[in-house]
Simulated scan of single mutants.
Amino acid sequence: MEDAKLTPRKLATRIGVAPKTVERWLADAELLPHARNRVDACRALKVDEDMIWPKAVQERVKTGHDRELAHAYPYRSACPSTVWGELIAGASTDIFFAGYTNYFVWLEQAAFIETLRRKIVSGCRVRFLLGDPDGEVTRQREAIEDVALSVGTRIRISLEHLGRLGPLDGLETRFSSPEDAVNHVSLSVFRFDHDALVTPHLARLVGHDSPLLHLRRQGDSGMFDRFAEHAEELWDRGVPQTP
C-alpha cells in the first residue's frame, strides 16, 4: 500500500468496499476476502495475488481426485447462464446435451439455434439425447413432479426447436432406450469438449432444483471420464430420431 501510495480509505474506494473492510484485512492475516475483491485489490496495488493472499492460491491447486471439480452449485439454476454460454462458445469438437428434456437451454441461451448452426457448420459435432415423450418412464416422472409443464411437453418443445435447426450433417438426436430411461432421467450430463456440467436429479425435484457439478477433464479415468462414459453408453443404445 505504501508503494502504491494508497491509504486504507483510498484502497477501499478503488475496490468498492467500506474502509473498515480493508482495516479488517490488515488486522487479520488469515482473513480471506471474496475473490472479486482480491482481484480488484491486486489490480489497484499492482501485485500478484500470491504476494498478498498466498492461501487463496494454494487452495486452488488441487492434487487429489477432486482436481477435476471446477465448481459446484447447490441448484442447477444457481449456475449462471453465462457459464453455459461460455462453454458452448468455447467448444469446437463435441457438444452433447444428455439431459432428459434439455428444455431449459432453449430458453436461457439467446439465439441458441443460430449458435448451434454456426458450431455445426464449423465442424463441431452436436448431439441431443432425450427421453421418449411417450415412454413409460416419462409418464411416471410426470406423476412424481406434478408440475404444469409436463416432462413430455418439455421434450416436445426441444424436438420442435431441433426441427427448426435440422436436418444438418453434424446434428444428431436420439431417444434413450426404454431399458435406459430410468438411468437417463436420474442423471443429466452436458458435455462441451473437455468440460461437463452434471446434474444428479434428487427425488421429486425438477432439474433446476437439483445440484450441478462443473467438471474439467485433467486426465484418464477421472470424474469427467466416468460421467462422459455414462452418457456415451446411453447414447450408443439410444434410438435415432429425425428432427
Score class of each variant (00 low, 15 high):
53 W>K: 05
39 V>H: 14
50 D>F: 08
56 A>L: 05
63 T>P: 06
48 D>G: 05
45 L>R: 00
52 I>W: 02
65 H>Y: 07
49 E>P: 12
84 W>F: 06
61 V>C: 06
44 A>Q: 05
69 L>N: 14
73 Y>L: 00
82 T>P: 15
58 Q>F: 01
54 P>M: 07
29 A>F: 13
86 E>W: 10
80 P>Y: 06
55 K>C: 04
68 E>S: 07
63 T>E: 03
52 I>M: 01
37 N>R: 08
82 T>M: 08
80 P>I: 02
72 A>G: 13
80 P>N: 01
73 Y>E: 00
88 I>S: 04
40 D>F: 03
72 A>T: 12
41 A>S: 09
68 E>Y: 07
21 T>H: 13
67 R>H: 04
85 G>W: 08
82 T>N: 13
74 P>L: 09
38 R>Y: 11
65 H>S: 10
69 L>G: 06
83 V>F: 05
54 P>Y: 03
85 G>F: 02
37 N>D: 14
55 K>A: 14
82 T>F: 10
66 D>N: 08
89 A>C: 02
33 P>Y: 12
33 P>R: 05
22 V>L: 13
64 G>R: 01
64 G>I: 02
45 L>W: 02
40 D>Y: 00
53 W>F: 13
89 A>W: 07
45 L>Q: 02
31 L>Q: 15
46 K>L: 08
83 V>K: 07
27 A>I: 07
59 E>F: 09
78 A>E: 10
56 A>Q: 03
81 S>E: 02
47 V>M: 00
63 T>Y: 05
46 K>A: 06
84 W>T: 06
76 R>V: 06
49 E>V: 06
39 V>D: 09
84 W>N: 03
87 L>E: 12
62 K>D: 01
40 D>K: 03
50 D>G: 00
54 P>F: 00
61 V>Y: 15
70 A>W: 05
75 Y>D: 01
36 R>V: 04
26 L>Q: 09
53 W>E: 01
85 G>C: 10
21 T>N: 01
21 T>L: 01
46 K>P: 04
36 R>S: 09
53 W>I: 06
54 P>V: 08
48 D>F: 05
56 A>W: 09
40 D>S: 11
34 H>T: 13
32 L>V: 07
68 E>A: 09
44 A>Y: 08
58 Q>C: 00
31 L>I: 15
64 G>A: 09
21 T>Q: 05
23 E>Y: 12
50 D>T: 02
62 K>I: 04
33 P>G: 10
28 D>V: 07
67 R>T: 00
42 C>Y: 03
79 C>Q: 02
42 C>L: 02
22 V>K: 09
30 E>M: 10
47 V>G: 01
81 S>L: 02
70 A>L: 04
81 S>Y: 04
32 L>C: 06
52 I>C: 04
59 E>M: 12
87 L>G: 10
55 K>G: 03
88 I>D: 04
45 L>C: 03
78 A>H: 12
38 R>I: 05
24 R>C: 08
87 L>T: 11
31 L>S: 15
54 P>H: 08
80 P>W: 00
51 M>L: 11
49 E>I: 15
74 P>F: 04
69 L>F: 03
90 G>F: 07
48 D>M: 04
52 I>R: 00
76 R>H: 00
57 V>C: 12
30 E>Q: 15
72 A>Q: 11
88 I>Y: 08
50 D>K: 09
28 D>E: 12
87 L>M: 08
51 M>Q: 14
23 E>S: 15
26 L>S: 11
23 E>L: 14
80 P>F: 07
59 E>R: 14
28 D>A: 09
43 R>I: 03
60 R>V: 01
